[in-house]
Every structure is written in C-alpha cells, then in structure tokens.
Simulated scan of single mutants.
Amino acid sequence: MNHSDTPRVTVLTVPDCPSAPLIRERITEALQGRTVPVEWIEVQDADEAVRHRMTGSPTLLVDGVDPFAHSGAAPSLSCRLYRHADGTTDGAPAVADLRIALTGSGPSRTSPR
C-alpha cells in the first residue's frame, strides 16, 4: 500500500467526551472497507488544545488539517457541534461528510455497498 494514499487521521477529545463514541462509530462506518489507523488524543488542558489546534471536542484532523474548521474558531476544550445538510446538529460529522473528508472524494455520489 502506498503511504501517501492513506490519510493520517487524528481525533482530539477531552476526557469522557460524550460525543467520542458517536464520532468513533461514524468514522468506522465512513471507512467501511478501508483500513486507516486513527490516533485518539485526549486533550487535558487549554495549552494542549492550542498546540493541537483543537476547536472543541471532538475535533477530527486529516493530515493535520480540520476539514470541518470554521474561520476564526478559537482553540477550545468545549463540546463541539457539527451542522448537517438537513440543518440538524449533533456531536459528530455526518457519515457522508466524514467519507468525503477521509477519502478526498467529491460530493458523495457513490452507490451504497
């Protein structure tokens, strides 16, 4: 396998983040059929949040970049909410959005498997 084909995926959370199980489940679903190592980092304090560029828990980084970043968002240990295409929000990106972020493919037009 070519290393450049596999994104470096990191999930930043605070201890006992209530959305950690949800993002873990959605990442697993989005990566269905692909083996991609995911590094989980528990951020303990504000200095670590700044160092890791965490803008709320959970924060997903793909090759060191937050694909769901909002301009001007400050580093934070707070709970993070993600807005979905239908206008609803919850504590993790939608599976379709994660699939795009993790595979680099455009709008999800692939047939379900």
Rank of each mutant, 00 (worst) to 15 (best):
H84D: 12
G72P: 08
L98P: 03
S19R: 05
A85P: 00
S78P: 02
C17T: 00
N2T: 02
L61F: 10
S111I: 08
T88I: 05
I23P: 08
S71T: 07
D5K: 14
D47E: 15
P107F: 09
R80W: 06
L31I: 09
A20E: 06
A30H: 03
S111L: 15
I23W: 09
G72E: 02
T103V: 00
D63L: 05
L12W: 03
V36K: 04
L81F: 12
D45V: 03
S76C: 11
D63W: 06
E25W: 08
G56A: 08
L98V: 03
G106W: 02
V43K: 10
T89V: 14
G56D: 02
P107N: 04
P15K: 09
T89L: 12
P58G: 02
A94F: 02
D97W: 06
R34T: 02
V11N: 01
E42L: 11
C79D: 02
T13L: 05
M54R: 01
R24G: 14
Q44V: 02
L77P: 02
A94Q: 10
D45C: 13
I27S: 08
G91D: 07
S71H: 13
L81G: 11
S71N: 09
I41A: 12
E25K: 14
M1A: 14
C17N: 04
L81Y: 11
D47M: 13
V62F: 07
V43M: 12
